[in-house]
């Protein structure tokens, strides 16, 4: 069973379609969405239409991200870029879109041994950034408290791809994966994979990110998928969003 793990789509329809197509060609049979479906991007409604169909009709799993929460409970002001983007997004969503986002859980289980969470299993609603081994260790330990059978935690939130693993001396190490290389993740160890951002890469590479988990073979492959990022950026400008969001897509940072 191959499961495509997409996170931080951020209302980027072009990136979403490219990743879905790529995952389909790779033989993905299931889809898991790790939150931040909206925010920053120009196409929240079409993206949500597509994702709601995938969840309701194809059994895709989906958890809530901080940007999704910000749209459900709109911020009072528009000081930060994130707040501006939430204010911009809100009137473009239908009641059905809002209800869908409001109903998303903070965590979800993927089979008996995997946990999906947008940021960290250690207080999912506090949106901790996992940027080092210690933060990863806290998330992994929290997942084990939920259920000792959990061997895999799949997350997004930090817009880069990383694989943390528990070594034999119970220390979490960070590994920077090479795109396209299936990495063995045997279930006798514990793993925390950060799948990267589908709709807003920030590492200087404009290509969309996602990961493909092969539960049977116990491998995870981190992918980079080229998409029409200039069209996505043009849509951001045409929509009247801050110019910075468009530049990010154009440069990938």
């Amino acid at each position: 069973m191959k499961i495509a793990l997409l996170s931080d789509i951020h209302a980027n329809l072009q990136a979403l379609e490219a990743c879905l197509e790529h995952a389909h060609a790779q033989g993905a049979q299931q889809l898991a969405l790790l939150g931040d479906l909206v925010g920053y991007g120009a196409d929240p409604a079409p993206v949500l239409d597509r994702l709601i169909r995938l969840v309701h009709e194809d059994g895709a799993l989906c958890v809530r991200g901080n940007h999704d929460a910000a749209v459900v409970t709109p911020p009072a002001g528009a000081e930060t870029l994130g707040e501006q983007s939430a204010q911009w997004t809100l009137p473009r969503l239908s009641a059905q879109h809002r209800a869908f986002l409001a109903g998303l859980p903070l965590t979800a289980r993927l089979g008996p041994d995997a946990l999906l969470v947008h940021a960290s299993a250690d207080g999912p609603e506090r949106w901790h950034y996992i940027t080092d081994g210690n933060a990863a260790e806290r998330s992994m330990a929290a997942a084990t408290r939920i259920d000792p059978a959990i061997r895999y935690v799949f997350s997004g939130h930090v817009h880069e791809q990383a694989l943390y693993f528990l070594t034999p001396t119970a220390k979490l190490m960070r590994f920077n994966p090479q795109p396209g290389v299936p990495v063995p993740v045997p279930p006798h160890r514990q793993w925390l994979a950060i799948v990267g951002s589908c709709g807003q890469p920030r590492d200087g590479d404009t290509r969309a990110m996602y990961a493909l988990f092969d539960a049977g073979a116990a491998t995870i492959t981190f992918h980079r998928v080229p998409y029409d990022h200039m069209a996505a950026a043009a849509a951001v400008r045409a929509g009247g969003l801050p110019d910075f969001f468009a530049e990010r897509l154009e440069k990938g940072r």
């Binding site: 070594t167 034999p168 001396t169 190490m173 590994f175 090479q178 063995p184």
Partner: peptide
């Protein structure tokens, strides 16, 4: 192997 997590790196 540069493409795989190094289990001995601990």
């Amino acid at each position: 192997h540069a493409h795989y997590p190094d289990l001995l790196a601990e």
